[in-house]
Design a protein around this nucleic acid. Structure first.
Length: 198
DNA sequence: AACGAAGTCAACCGCTAATTT
DNA sequence: GAAATTAGCGGTTGACTTCGT
């Protein structure tokens, strides 16, 4: 991808793929000044980029402890479970996968998992009338957990989500990606769905 | 070997939410 | 409290790669 910058008198920001030199400049600047005020970072680092672009580059590629590619079976399973639970809340899902970014999860979902699921969902010789919950965007089932500390409440569409975000994003106790949490949640979810069908 | 189709993924865009002035 | 600014999110685009014919 060649940058689409033009040599006009007007201030035109670079677009397209980042060069190694741009990456280096951005990393160096953030190392010294921190990752705040992206507009300022863009201006002061000497990068001919908009703040948004700098932020995205840092978060998705330059940030320390970023994992890239090779999504494990365990991670894939977690993504599937979390997507069932949360819908297209990529940043929340990514928040449960240390080192992974929302963009990567989103891409992985769109290119790998959505197909996998639609194949699984679609029984041979049978037309599925409507998109499955997995493939349709963000239509979480109604799930309400008992009101206790750290409980997650999900009611109807996700406008009424009440997370304990501190716990949700706490990776200090991450063993196997916190799968126990998801398992418990989905068991409850499935229990409720069964009840509804009766 | 050549070509088109399909798949992949980095980056951009538009919008909303949160924060600052 | 209002307006302006900044941060963050999810959807979409488009260049590049891989695959099938």
């Amino acid at each position: 991808m060649a940058p689409k910058s033009e040599g006009t008198a007007k201030k035109v920001t670079n677009k397209g793929a980042w060069t190694a030199e741009e990456d280096r400049r951005l990393s160096e600047y953030i190392e010294v000044h921190g990752a705040k005020r992206w507009k300022t970072i863009a201006a002061k680092s000497g990068l001919n980029r908009c703040g948004k672009s700098c932020r995205l580059r840092w978060l998705n590629y330059l940030r320390p402890n970023i994992k890239r590619g090779n999504i494990s079976d365990e991670e894939e399973d977690l993504i599937l479970r979390l997507h069932k639970l949360l819908g297209n809340r990529w940043s929340l899902i990514a928040g449960r996968l240390p080192g992974r970014t929302d963009n990567e999860i989103k891409n992985y979902w769109n290119s790998h998992l959505s197909k996998k699921i639609s194949q699984k969902e679609k029984p041979p010789n049978k037309v599925v009338p409507e998109a499955s919950p997995e493939t349709s965007p963000a239509t979480p089932q109604e799930v309400v957990l008992p009101a206790e500390e750290g409980a997650v409440k999900v009611v109807g569409n996700f406008l009424d989500v009440d997370f304990d975000t501190d716990e949700f994003f706490d990776f200090t106790a991450e063993g196997s990606y916190g799968l126990e949490w998801v398992n418990e949640f989905l068991e409850l979810d499935e229990g409720l769905s069964l009840k509804e069908k009766m």
